[in-house]
Each structure stands twice: as structure tokens, then as C-alpha cells.
Amino acid sequence: LEGMVFNVKYLGMTLVGQPKGEDMASAAIRRIVAMARASAKKFRKVTLTVSPKGIIITDTETTDLIENVSIYRISYCTADKTQDKVFAYVSQSQFNETLECHAFLCQKKKIAQAVTLTVAQAFKVALDLWEIAQ
């Protein structure tokens, strides 16, 4: 409920056509990783705080807020088998109706899985809270 904190690196984002699906996410992660590799920039270190309210992304070094993604805007999360240190989620843009896939590089495969399972648990708690609120 208080939020779990993970230190990762931001790989980037791409637009996607569907809110969920393994093939969609896998292709999106491939595109993001290819773009990230092609760019000479160092990946930004970010801190993810995962709670039933959503995911708060801050810059690890400056602590500046990058984005506060409401749980109601997140449709999907995954740790892909081919890019196994990558955690990704799909969310509706805060500005319009478009769907975005955001990907993050974790230090280990286990961390990518832990972030994904934590977000999944946040989904479940958010559903419980939503049902209580009805």
C-alpha cells in the first residue's frame, strides 16, 4: 500500500495499437531496445515507486518527478522472455487517447520479474479497493 521502490534505467517508449497482449508488448519492447541501442545517450537512472495508486517515476539522481501514472491509466505490465532484464508497462497517454509502452532496464532478470509481479499485485489491490468503493 505504501509503495515498493525499484531503481532501474529508462530505455524509452513507443506508441502501441492495443492496450494488452504478449505479441504487441514483445514487438514494442524490441523497438524500444533497438532505438535505445542506436542512441549514444546514457540511460537515465529512474526510481519507480509502485503502489495501488499507480507508478511514480522520479529521476534517481535529482529526485525530480518524471511522471505519476495513475493505476487507472495502466492496462498491462510484462517481463519479456527475450529481453529478460526489461520491465515494461502499457498506459494511456496523460494528454490524449494514445497508448504508450514504456520500458525499463533492470540490473537482473529477477528484478524485472519482481517489478512485474509487484505491479500485478498493485492491480489486484486496486481492484479490491475499487470494489469496496462501489
Partner: peptide, 18 residues
């Protein structure tokens, strides 16, 4: 060997006003 793990969000696009 690992499989992809992935989860759909059951509260996606729900709001507390529903």
C-alpha cells in the same frame, strides 16, 4: 529458460465515479 510474465490490469479505465 524463462517464460514471459504478463498481467492485464482489471481496473484499467475504471474510475471511482462509475
Amino acid at each position: 529458460n524463462t517464460n514471459t510474465i504478463h498481467f492485464d490490469n482489471p481496473v484499467y479505465q475504471k474510475t471511482t465515479e462509475d
